[in-house]
Design a protein around this nucleic acid. Structure first.
Lengths: 127, 127
DNA sequence: CTGTAAGTTTCCCATAACGGGAAGCTTTAG
DNA sequence: CTAAAGCTTCCCGTTATGGGAAACTTACAG
């Protein structure tokens, strides 16, 4: 199938699919005589796989890793779990960081009257 | 004062201070005869201001906006508050998104035995 | 006073993960 | 058959810096 068909089936923009091919993450099965990328079902499954993993926040590098495990029938589920767990820790760390920012900013916004006068605790804090 | 002094005082890397000068966000007061950037107290205060704002997650564009308000003694605190509030909404949206990712990933990790066998719900889910 | 180490300058390349758009070829629909 | 749509490669832009080279200036040890 041609790139737009595969892209749509995987729920990805064509540009992204082309990009994945360029960086060797998911290559098309081959090329048509005219040089068009030709995707088969295997490649399509990989595209969907990567799409979902990206949506879960895995980086391209991590996707490459997961894809390697995905294709390796010898892999242990422990290997996959380890990657996912590390990613879970990343998310938790980001959540904690965001919470701190949130609380600090909320405190500032709450302290600011937001009226027409120029005195503003937010700017005061930043100075 | 020279760039490294200002950078250290503001708690920023020298490279970053130079970058801020390049994009016209915080320019040095002038140049020494040898062409070295020369920072005065006003510029230093702005550097610190931007450093704090960046730490609160404001983008460079938003910093430029805040800096404009900061320098404008005519501004109303409402203007500042509006920017901060928008930023607060950004944070909350990001938090909600992260929570969804977290729950989904945690469910997968919890379902995965993580042993030496190859069957893995995480990969199953991604396929 | 001098040699050298440290600091500064500009300039260019790299990051992550694409998106936009141009120029040119191929396929498809009317 | 022709025009539109789709495909190709290529190049630039994004965000906010970081790394490093080559050349110059300053600062300090001896």
């Amino acid at each position: 199938m041609k790139i737009s068909t595969a892209a749509e089936a995987a729920g990805l923009p064509v540009k992204t699919v082309r990009y994945y091919a360029d960086i060797g993450l998911v290559k098309p099965q081959g090329r048509t005589q005219a040089g068009y990328r030709d995707y088969d079902d295997v490649a399509l499954r990989k595209l969907s796989f990567v799409g979902r993993a990206r949506a879960l926040g895995f980086s391209i590098v991590q996707c490459r890793e997961l894809l390697g495990l995905y294709e390796n029938t010898e892999r242990s589920s422990a290997e996959v779990r380890q990657i996912a767990q590390a990613r879970l820790e990343d998310i938790r760390a980001k959540q904690r960081e965001l919470q701190l920012l949130h609380d600090e900013l909320q405190g500032l916004v709450g302290a600011c009257k937001g009226d027409a006068r120029p005195d503003c605790p937010i700017l005061d804090y930043l100075s």
